[in-house]
Design a protein around this nucleic acid. Structure first.
Lengths: 232, 232
DNA sequence: TTCATAATTTTGTTATAACAAAAATCATGA
DNA sequence: TCATGATTTTTGTTATAACAAAATTATGAA
């Protein structure tokens, strides 16, 4: 049962945090944000434990944590699944994102140095480049980095972790329709407007740009979700 | 080891949720919001487990969950304590509260029925009564109920649970100075203004009243915390 | 087939023991 | 008195087994 395994994920490869629970948590989260599991996919403790080569305790802890955070949902006393598309939740999370990411943006905007602006410009270039080549996963990754580079400026750790939980919540169940969602050059205009606001030292302009970005994303995501629901 | 215990909390008394982890979680949370533990108080797994007459697993899970939520903090690889006063965290949480509770208020305001208004009026009477008799714990409890009665109107469960986490976060480490903070008739004016706004079907008025309430509370709490810090 | 029910398997939860590492205590020397 | 190092105790984590309950499959009758 404890033989050194070959292909599968191994806890030994987690060289940073000693806790197997954290390893399991990060692993599942990673899979989730990569869209590895379809909505409705079941995550039984023992299967997860076996997949990650850990005991039941860390697996259980990781799953439960993700349930608390809303990235997974319980549909029965003994069944945890990857959540299905839920337009109500998408709306709710979007409203929270507007409030919280708007707050983070406005509080941090005046702290943007030239280095930050350069980083954002570089990220935006990478995003458009990835979109041109239809590497949506990369584009999404850099898009997230773009947002959080701005949010980190306010230096409010509580706020940041709450925002991250929101991204995970919506990202988990909407990830698989990001490709069709990202077709058009998503967010370019808003991102550039945000950068401009940072340069101009105009916090409310940056906030407006970011809020616009969130709203645009919401509309596209909603449309994509609705179309998919109609087809099914 | 398993004899029927006398005075202490017993898992058998938890007649609703079958999970001992949840029982342990609620119990610690309850103690925390009642200010039973001073900041700096250690919460070792085995002590908690013994106190609640449960095994180490549920105790560990409950403690870790509270750490994730920010209600408890880790100050070493093996030491979890009730957090100390932290003015930066108070500020940060206040900003988040303004954004999120403001959102909940505005979204739900138009849904207030006469029953809700009556309930709020009754709660406000209880609050002032409790304050007159210096039963601060009761006043705080009803104050929370007042706020959440309004927040529940918007029917956004994600939002509500996030707000609850914020209350717990700040409540845990500031609870013991609420008495001196509540000296003056705290919040009466704002609460009445909020009720008025609900009756008038004026969401932004209700939001303004609630934000004022949050800000007033922040100022008083900050002042009380600063005075206490100076004394120590 | 369809639905209810019984049998079987799977599954979440929990207590426990073992281990390694951290924290506390004690001893010793300046 | 204070620091410092050694020793002892405490502590978090994890794998595991056992149990009860849920989920699944099989079975039977209409």
């Amino acid at each position: 049962m404890n033989e050194t395994t070959t292909g599968e994920e191994s806890p030994a490869s987690d060289l940073q945090s000693g806790r197997l629970s954290d390893f399991a948590y990060s692993s599942i989260k990673e899979q989730l944000t990569r869209g590895a599991y379809k909505p409705g996919h079941k995550l039984p403790i023992r299967s997860v434990a076996e997949m990650l080569n850990v005991g039941a305790t860390p697996a259980r802890e990781a799953i439960n944590r993700l349930v608390f955070e809303g990235a997974l949902v319980m549909v029965g006393p003994k069944t945890v699944i990857v959540p299905h598309l839920d337009l109500a939740a998408l709306y709710e999370v979007t409203q929270m994102r507007l409030a919280l990411e708007g707050l983070a943006t406005e509080k941090g905007a005046l702290r943007a140095t030239n280095d930050v602006v350069d980083k954002l410009l570089a990220l935006q270039e990478k995003i458009t480049f990835s979109l041109d080549e239809k590497r949506y996963s990369d584009a999404l990754h850099d898009n997230k980095e773009f947002h959080f580079t701005i949010y980190r400026l306010c230096e409010m750790p509580h706020l940041l972790s709450t925002i991250e939980a929101l991204w995970l919540r919506v990202g988990a169940s909407f990830h698989d329709l990001y490709p069709e969602f990202a077709e058009a050059k998503y967010g370019v205009h808003n991102h550039l407007a945000a950068i401009e606001g940072l340069v101009d030292k105009d916090p409310s302009a940056v906030r407006a740009a970011m809020e616009n970005d969130i709203r645009d994303g919401y509309r596209r995501l909603k449309k994509a979700a609705q179309e998919r629901l109609r087809r099914q």
